[in-house]
Amino acid sequence: MNDTGNACGSEDLGGYVLVRVSGEVDLSWSQQVRDAILAALGRGGVGVELSQVGYIDSSGIAALVEGFQRARSTNKRFGLIAASKPVLAVLQLARLDKVFPMFAGVDEARVA
């Protein structure tokens, strides 16, 4: 976490990794988000928690799409958890809101 509020951390929940993203996901660090998601997928299913994301641009969306595609090709679970309004708006704009599995909380995501 730095002064921008941008942060990306992961938490192992036993075969399921919760990646928490917060702040404004843009080109300046979306690569880090991407790397974190792909790394987490190496350890199991992944849920990306987005409730504290105030902004996301196409490079951030691209990171999510890449994670989603990697999970499918490796037969792992992948979902978005508690996506904030700004994230949902952009997903809708990109017509991806029906593509990602979306969950209200981490518990639903883990049992899905």
């Binding site: 641009d57 196409s58 969306i61 691209a62 799409v65 989603f68 990109a94």
Partner: peptide, 14 residues
């Protein structure tokens, strides 16, 4: 075309 699900090229459609 946005009907394809792929990571890049979303800027212009936006």
């Amino acid at each position: 075309d946005l009907s394809e699900c792929k990571p890049g090229g979303l800027g212009l459609p936006f």
